[in-house]
Write a protein that binds this DNA or RNA. Sequence first.
RNA 1: GGGCGGAUAGCUCAGGGGUAGAGCGUCGCCCUUACAAGGCGAGGGUCCCAGGUUCGAAGCCUGGUCCGCCCACCA
Length: 1032
Amino acid sequence: MTEEKRTELAKGYEHRDVEARWGPFWRERGFFHADEKDRSRPPFSIVLPPPNVTGSLHLGHALTATLQDVLIRWKKMSGFNTLWLPGTDHAGIATQMIVEKELKKTEQKSRHDLGREEFLRRVWAWKEKYGSRIGEQHKALGAGLDWERERFTMDEGLSRAVREVFVRLHEEGLVYREKKLINWCPDCHTALSDLEVEQKDAEQGELWSFAYPLVDGSTEVVVATTRPETMLGDTAVAVHPDDERYRAVVGKKVRHPLTGRELPIVADAILVDPKFGTGAVKVTPAHDFNDFETGKRHGLAQLTVIGPDGKMTAEAGPVAGLDRFEARKRVKELVAEQGLDRGTKPHLLAIGRCQRSQTILEPLLSDQWYVRIEPLARPAIEAVEQGKTRFIPEQWTNTYMAWMRNIHDWCISRQLWWGHQIPAWYCPDGHVTVARETPSACGLCGKGPLRQDEDVLDTWFSSALWPFSTMGWPDRTETLGTFYPTSVMETGHDIIFFWVARMMMMGLHFMGEVPFRTVYLHPMVRDEKGQKMSKTKGNVIDPLVITEQYGADALRFTLAALTAQGRDLKLAKERIEGYRAFANKLWNATRFALMNLEGFEASPGAGAEGRTAADRWILARTQRAVNETVAALEAFKFNEAAGTVYHYVWHELCDWYIELAKEALYGEDAGRKRAAQGTLVHALAAALRLLHPFMPFITEELWHVLRAKVKGDAWPDSILAAPYPAVGPVDEAAERAFQPLLETIDAIRNVRGEMNIPPRAPLSIDIATEDPVIRGAFDADGGVIARLASVSHTELYAAQSTRPAPTSAVAVCSGFEVRVHFGHAVDVAAELARIAKEFEKLEQDLASIEKKLANPNFVAKAPPEVVEKDRLRAQELREKRGKLGVHRDMLSGAERPPRAAGADRRDVMETNNPNDPSKPTPAQPASQTTMEQAQQVISTVAEVGKAAVSAVVAGAERAFEKIEKAMPARKPAKKAKAKAQARKPARKPARKATKAARKAAPRKAARRSVKQGKKPARKVARKPARKGGQRR
RNA sequence: GGGCGGAUAGCUCAGGGGUAGAGCGUCGCCCUUACAAGGCGAGGGUCCCAGGUUCGAAGCCUGGUCCGCCCACCA
C-alpha cells in the first residue's frame, strides 16, 4: 500500500478516502476468514441476525452490525479465533408482498396470473438484484464478516436443514396437522402465528345487543356482540349455570331470526361472566377463539360464515357475498326489521391486526401445520434457569420466561408461495406422507400420484435453525464442532419471541446444546423525537446516508456510545457530529506525533530513563483507560467502553499529555525528547488499538502511517493483527505524583478566566506547601506549569505566602496553595467575590461534614474507613478555609498579618518567556505566617462567618478605591472593572451566591484534572446546599 | 387485565447507599506553529411526588403521578 510510505497527514480527517481503502484490504488479506481447523485459539462466534434479503439496512441493522463488529474485532485482537457469519433471510410474507406489489405496478398482474413457478422465478430474480445491497451496506459500515460463509435461508443446504427438522419433528409427533381456528389475514390470504398478530390500543367500537326469541315463544334471550356479522354463524347461546335469570331456559332453544335455525341454550361457566352485559353470550365456534373452545365442550356445530377473502359465505344466508363489514351493517338492519334490536352502546375493544398489512384479522377455521411447543419449551426454560444461556440486560430473562411458560402451539404453515414448501404429500385418498425427499408413492397406501402440500413454512421456522443450519447441519461439520454453541447472540429485544426463543428450542432439540451462551439484547433505535423508525412514518434512515456525510467511524462510535443498557436509543445528528470531531481529533493527534518523531527509537524501553512525571502520568492513565475499557466490553457496556476511550483520548492524551510533552519534544535534551516520543507513541498506539473495534477505518489508517514512521517490530501490517491492549496494574503513584501540577495549572487557568486575564499574559506565581512530597513534585517538574499556564516566574515556599495581597489572587488546593501575581493591582472586588464564593462553599461542605461527624450514630455505625475519610476531609477543608481566610483578609485590608522573620523562600524557577513584558517585581523575601497566626485568623474567620462576607466585600471595595487612587498607572483593565461592577448585584441574593459558591474554584480545578483511582480527587465536597438549610 | 422499563442540567442521556456527571447547547476569553471539526474558562440541578428503612437515600422499600413498551380470547 502506497499510504504506508506516507508519514504526513492532511490537515483534517477526510473519511471518504480512508474508508474506501481498508475494507478491501481486510477482505483481500482474509482477516475475517474464520478457521474451523484452528483449535489453538479459543473460539468466539457470532451469527449475524439475517436481514430481509430484499430489504435495505436501517439504523437498527447498523447498530447490530456495529455492536457485533466491536465484539468481533475486540476478540480477534484479544487472540480469539473469531467467526462472524453473515447471511440473509428470505422473509416470506414481506418479500412476497414486495414482489407482488411491484408486479401489480409494472405489469398489472397478480401472482396467480403468473402461476407459482413463474412467480417464484421472479422473486429469485428480485432477490439477486437487490440482495447485494445489504452486503454493500455492511461493508460500508466496516463489518468484519466472513463473507465466504454467507448464507441464505433458502440455500440448498439450509433448505435441507429445514426439511430435516420438519420431518424429524413430525416423526417425533411434535409436528402435526389439524383443523383449528387460526388468525387469518384476508388481505395476505394466509394464516399467521399468534406473534404476528398486533394488538393496537383499544379501538372505539360498538356493543350491539339483540334478542334471540325462544322457539317456544315463551321469552327471549338478549345477547351482545361487537361483531354483528358473526351472528349468522352462531350455533348456540350460552349462559352461566348458576345464573338464576336463565335457569329456566337452559336446554331450551332459540330461533335464529335471519336463518330460522334452532340454537341450543347451553350453560357454560368458563365462557360466561354473569356480571357482563345481559349474562348471555352468543356462541360462534367458527369465528371466535373462546367460542371455538366452548363449541368443543358442548359439541356445537362449527358454521363458517366468513371466507378467506373476508366476504360472507353462502352459509351466511341473507348477507352471503357481502364484505364482512358491509354485512355487519346489513345484519343490524335485518335484525332491527324484526324488532329484535335491543340497542347499541359505544365500546372499547382490542382488535387483532396483521403485523404486515394492518388488516383486521379474521379467526378462521382451517387445516394448518403446528409445532407442539411445550416439549421444546421445557428444555429451553431449564437451560436459562441453569444459566447455560444468560440474558443481558438481565431483565429480559423474565420476559423470556413468562412467554415460554405460557406458550401455545406454533402455527407454522403459511398460504404463501415464497418460502420452504412443506415436505408433506397427499395421495388421492388423502393420506399424508412426510418425507425428506419427494416420495413417489403414498407412505401408507402406496398409491399415487402424490400432490405436495402447497403451503410454505413460517419464515421464522428456518430462522430458528440459523445458528446451526448455517454451519452445515445436519452434517456434523468441523465448523459446528469449533463454533457451536455461538458465543453471543446480539439482536434487538423486539424479536426475543420470534427468534431468540425459537432458536433456543431448536438448538437444544437438535444440537443438544444451547445455540448461544449469551444473549445481548440491544435497544431500539429511534429518531430524534423518540419515534420508532418505520417506513410508514418515513423516518427510516439509510446508514449509508450517514456514513457518507459523517463517516462510518463516527456513526459506529455514536451508536456504541449511545447503547446503554435498558433503554432505547435516540439518534441525534449533533451527537454524530460530535464523534466526527472526535475522529478528527484523533487524526490530528497522530499528525502531531508524526511531526515530532524525528530520531524516535522503536526499541522497547528506549528513553525510559528520561521520562518525566508527565510521561509516567500518561502511561498510568493509559493503563487505567485500558483496564476500564476492557472491563466495560466484558460487561457489554458499550457506552462505557466508548466513553472511557473518548475521554482518555481527548481529555487526557490530547488536552493534557500532548501539551505537556511539547516542551520535551521541541527541546534540545535528547534524552527527554526520546522519552517523550516513546511515551507518546505508546499512548497513541494504545489509543488506536483501544478504538479500533469502534472506529476501524481511521485507526487502521493511522496505524499504517504511524507504523511507517516508527518502524518498530511490534507493529504488524494491520492494526487488526495487533494485540488489544492488555489489562494490567496501574501506576497509581505516578498518577498521584503528578496531580498537584495538573491542579496548579487548572487553578491558574481558573483565576485567569475569572479575573479576565488573557491566556498568554505572563504571570508570576508563588506556590506554598508544607508537604515535602508535593514540594518535590514542583521541584522536579514545575516547569510544565510555566508552559501550560503561561507562567513566567515561580517561587516555592515552605508555608503560606504573604506577598502583598492587592496584586494577587490565590487558589487553595489539596495540600498546597497557589498565589497568582498579576504584576499590577488586582481587581480586588472581583477577587474578593471569587473568594467569597469559594469560601461559602467551603463553609457549607465543612458544616455538613462536621454535622455528620458530630453525630454519634454516624461515628459508631458507619464503616470506619468512611468516618476516617470524612475526618480527613474535614481537616483538609478547615485548612483550606483558613488559608483562604488569610488571603481574603489581607486582600480586604481588614487584617494584615504581621511579617515573620526569616525568608522561607526555597526556590525560584525562572521561565524564559520572550513575551514577558514586565518581570514581576523581584520577590521580596517573603514573610511567613506562622501556624499560630494562621490558626488565629482561622478562628476569627470562622466566627465572622458568612454574615461577614458582605461587610468584607464592602471593605474591599473601599480598599479597591484606595488602591486605584494610589496606583493610577496600574488601573485594572477596563473590562475587568466592568465585570466587577456587573457582578455586584449577583452577590446580593443569597440563593444565587450560594449556588455560585458551589462552583468554586477548587472543585472546578479538580474536575479538570482527571480521575484518580476509585475516588476521583476531582470530587471536592459538594453536598447540595438545600441540605444545609442555608439557602432559606 | 397482567408484566416490564423510564422520570437526573436548556436538550439528549450516563450513573447509582457515603463529596451530583457526560455530550450537545449557552455565556466569556483566545486564529497558542496537531486540530477553529480547535483551546481555556464560566454558568446551569427540589435527581417526579409522598411516606418508610438507614448513621446516611437521587439510589433501597411502599404508595402515588405522568410517559413508553410487551403480553392477554372477555361477549
